[in-house]
Structures are given as structure tokens and as C-alpha cells.
Design a protein around this nucleic acid. Structure first.
Lengths: 193, 193
DNA sequence: GCGCTACCATACGGCGCAGTATGGTGTGTG
DNA sequence: CACACACCATACTGCGCCGTATGGTAGCGC
């Protein structure tokens, strides 16, 4: 073979953050149950002897990973969108941002499925409440009264959550134009001129 | 002891349908993963020796139980609602029916979480498509054009799916009046007069 | 009242995962 | 250059589940 056979070219030598990254990736791909110690170890090319040096147990890994996800990505999305002045355009941008599902939203979808687990529930609750408040405020600034704004925000947020779930089935797969038209109607219905 | 010690007073003596019922109940309560042979056996007061007489394996039980759920309940809900002439009232009734979550909708929520499993996915796809078609037709009868009706149906169906998921977190728990007001706005937004 | 069959118990092997114990190696620092 | 520490491998126990094999019992027809 012509390839050089350097051993230890890039020996893994992991740190805690590497495990958290791998956990989030696996979480986004295959759900909470797939975040298993031995499974992740195989994926990282090490054994679980490594894991239990960095973390006391599986729960600690999940907690750390979710904390990072909640801080990083969540604040990013909100911060990126809340700069927009026009509330109508702000909601539109939020919807569009959030529907072009990057891995982060796959994490959200995976967490949603594991809402019964006591470790996951509070995370979902915080994220859900924050986004709901955000949308509610946008509707209020768009001129709706408190209850009207709250109900439309509930509707919008529920529709997003449902969309995330339903996007995983391929039957009513929309193409790009159909999707854009859907978003247009979505905004039009929720914020009539 | 003063109680009579009749043994075999009501010896279980199960049939396949009993296992299916128990499977659906457990599915609604604790999700797909909780539908485990030994677990169900404990719940039914027997051992798994019983189970493997009625079914070849766990997959067969799930398949049979889901088939019954899809036939019975699905047709029931649709049939009960589609008798209503006014499409506006028909959607309203569907939403109300479906949101006062009886165990059947808990099954739907549980299945939604397991959409990645090849046994579950086609069931969700069929049910989802059927309900989506149903709502789309209602919107068309309410006077919307094909694309308008399709998009509003998508929105309504997504909102329902999201609502089912979000109903499991207690933070924004609505009371009865709030919920009725929400439904009223829901209909009002989707089918303006 | 005898046996046949439907239904169930008991016992076993195997797999995948969590977590523990303990020994080994590369790397930087004195 | 040696030593300490960070990082990892190996090997083990324990648990919950799936599925199989096989023997037991109650109620039916005859």
C-alpha cells in the first residue's frame, strides 16, 4: 500500500466537550435513547473507559449537552431574529429560520419526543415558554390585544411544533415553492393586513 | 380470615384481544417502548409464556394492536364528524372532539414520538393523510380555492399535532374557558366570516 | 371419566446497556 | 530522564428485555 502507515496520526484524545458534541449529534440523528455510553464510545472510536473519566454517568452527559444546546443555539436564534423591527417581518423571519431545519431543530424535535423523561421536560418547558413569549410579544406589537395575541401565538407555536413533527414523514413533502407559498399563507392568516 | 378463599374465582384466561387492549392502554400511557412483553405480562397478572402462545413476537402484537386502533377509532372520529353539513361547524367539532383527548389521542401522541420506527411510520402516514384530506375538503367546501384550502388545512393539522405534543407540558395549562376561547379564535383565524 | 386442546408457568440462553475496578500508556514538566 | 497525571483499555457484575423449550392444568367433547 502506498499510504503511509503512521500510527497515532490523530489519536483521538478526547475531552468532555467532544462527548457533548457527539451526544448532541446523535441526539439530533437518532433520538434520546440513542445517546448511550457504549454506543457513543464506538462512534468516537474509544471505549467507555474514556467516558467514565469525563462524566460520572449518562445523565450528567445529557444534562451538560442540553445545557450547551439551550444556551448556544437558543440564544442565537432569538438574538438573530429579535433585531428585526417590524413584528410582522420578525415572525416571518422566525418561521423561515426555524423551518429550514438545521441540526438544532432536529435536536428540538428529538427532545419533544422524550418529553416524558424528567431530565428532558424542564428543557422543553423553558424553550417552549421563551419562544411562546417571543411570538406573543410580536403579535402584541403588531396591534393585537393581549388575549388575541396570546391565542395567535399559541396557534403559531403549535403549528411550528406540529410542522417539525410532520416534516419527518415524506408523504406530503413540499418542494421549495410550495413551502414558500405555505409560509406566505401562514403569515397572511395569522397577521392579516 | 372471613373472606372466602375461592381460588380461581376469576382466572384470567386471556385471548389475543386482551393483549392488544393492554398494549394500546400501555401505549397511550407510557409510549411505544413501554409495550414490552414481560411488562405487559406483569400488568395482566400472567407470565410471558401466555403471550408467546397468542403471538409469535412483540412486533406482531404491535401490528395487530395498531391495526385495530387505526380501524376502530379513526373511522369512529371521522364518521362522527363528517355527518355535519356546515364545513365551518364540522372543523370546529373535529377540533373540539380531538382536543378533549380521550385515550385514543394519547395513542396518536405516543405514535408520533416513535415515528422513526419502521413499524409505526406507515400508520402515522396513513392517519395523517386521511385527516389532512378530510380537513382540506372541509376548507374547500367552505369556499376556499384548492391551494388556499390545502395550506389552511396544513396549518390546522400542524397546529393540532403541535397542540397534542404541547399539551403534555403543564406550564401553559389552560382552563376550560381559556381553551374554549382559544378554539373560538382558532376557527375564527382559519375560517373568517 | 378420559383425553385433547387451549392456555399458562418455569426455566433457560442471549443481547445490549449502565456502571465499577483496575491496570496501562502517552505527554508534559521538573 | 523520570515521574505524575490525564486519558484510555480491559474485564467484570447486574439488570431488563426478547425469544425458546418444555412441562403443567383446567375445561371441553365424547
Amino acid at each position: 500500500m502506498t499510504e503511509r502507515t503512521r500510527k497515532h496520526t490523530t489519536r483521538p484524545r478526547l475531552c468532555a466537550a467532544d462527548w457533548e458534541d457527539c451526544a448532541l449529534l446523535t441526539l439530533a440523528e437518532s433520538g434520546v435513547a440513542a445517546v448511550a455510553v457504549e454506543s457513543l464510545a464506538r462512534r468516537l472510536g474509544v471505549t467507555k473507559g474514556s467516558f467514565y473519566w469525563h462524566f460520572p454517568n449518562r445523565e450528567a452527559l445529557l444534562q451538560a449537552a442540553l445545557e450547551r444546546w439551550e444556551q448556544n443555539d437558543e440564544r442565537e436564534v432569538i438574538a438573530h431574529v429579535e433585531a428585526i423591527a417590524d413584528p410582522r417581518e420578525r415572525v416571518r423571519e422566525l418561521v423561515r429560520q426555524v423551518s429550514h431545519k438545521r441540526p438544532s431543530h432536529a435536536v428540538f424535535a428529538a427532545l419533544l419526543k422524550a418529553i416524558d423523561q424528567p431530565l428532558i421536560r424542564p428543557v422543553i418547558e423553558r424553550v417552549s415558554q421563551r419562544r411562546l413569549d417571543f411570538v406573543t410579544e410580536a403579535f402584541e406589537q403588531a396591534g393585537f390585544g393581549p388575549t388575541q395575541a396570546a391565542n395567535r401565538a399559541r396557534l403559531a407555536w403549535s403549528a411550528y411544533v406540529g410542522f417539525v413533527q410532520l416534516a419527518q414523514i415524506r408523504q406530503p413533502r413540499m418542494n421549495h415553492d410550495e413551502f414558500e407559498a405555505y409560509i406566505r399563507d401562514f403569515i397572511e392568516v395569522l397577521i392579516p393586513r
